[in-house]
Design a binder for these strands. Sequence first.
DNA 1: TTATGTGCAAAGGGTTTGCACTCCG
DNA 2: CGGAGTGCAAACCCTTTGCACATAA
Lengths: 143, 143
Amino acid sequence: MHMSSSLHPAGAHRTTRQKLALERMLAACADFRSAQDLHAQLRAGGARVGLTTVYNNLRTLAERGAVDTVLTEDGETLYRRCENDSHHHHLVCRVCGRTVEISGPAVERWAAAVASSEGFFDVRHTVEIVGTCSGCVNSPTRP
Amino acid sequence: MHMSSSLHPAGAHRTTRQKLALERMLAACADFRSAQDLHAQLRAGGARVGLTTVYNNLRTLAERGAVDTVLTEDGETLYRRCENDSHHHHLVCRVCGRTVEISGPAVERWAAAVASSEGFFDVRHTVEIVGTCSGCVNSPTRP
DNA sequence: TTATGTGCAAAGGGTTTGCACTCCG
DNA sequence: CGGAGTGCAAACCCTTTGCACATAA
């Protein structure tokens, strides 16, 4: 049995109107957005896209590592395009949502060291830092 | 209007069979457990407790800071009694759930430094490290 | 006694799945 | 054409809420 005919290379991806719209939307957004949010904006912008499709594509993009995901405490997943292929973390403003991508070789090393000293293998870690950004400290109202 | 009569001090807490059972269960568990899980174990142990009550009490305990909570990627909240009042993080085995409390002055300093260099204030952070513990690396089946 | 606590049943809310239809390649 | 992609509706799953009943103080 031939595993894959020359017609369909391993990860065949079709270009569809919906995918393009979603990718354009992601490219235009600076912060993390929920799937529902992105869908609503797409609809508002006149794009005919289903919520399921948005979920499907976001999941795919996330698996592929093309978008970052963050979990909110109320069980929502937020997505944002990576502007940086390498491993990194986020510093998020709790008021305006402004996000800064940060990388810290120090933490990476620390996490790996701690884990291996406890005899753990195949280690992954997540780090989220939230604070109030300078712009929001002085203005009590949301921008 | 008198805000509170002398009969009922601000945070009145009643001691009930259910609360005691839950607290005993938490005291006996070393790792993070889901509400459903704790409820199932209570039932299995013969305790007559409702799922709603478990949720109610866990929420209260968490607000009070008596238990730590962790969010899984599939939207579940896991609870565990705090055995350590100070700030710390967790190293969790993805197979058996074994948890090690870790503290890392290095990360704390790093997080604080990164945040302030970006002009953020009132910073909080979360760190979760997951890996496969030594006991689970060699045994493909779950304990 | 009485209001706090309990717990069943049902609603909520984000996400996934079933499945027939669409349309890219 | 043929199968990847789409999207409605319904299922899922964890969690919360409504409300009548139980019970600690």
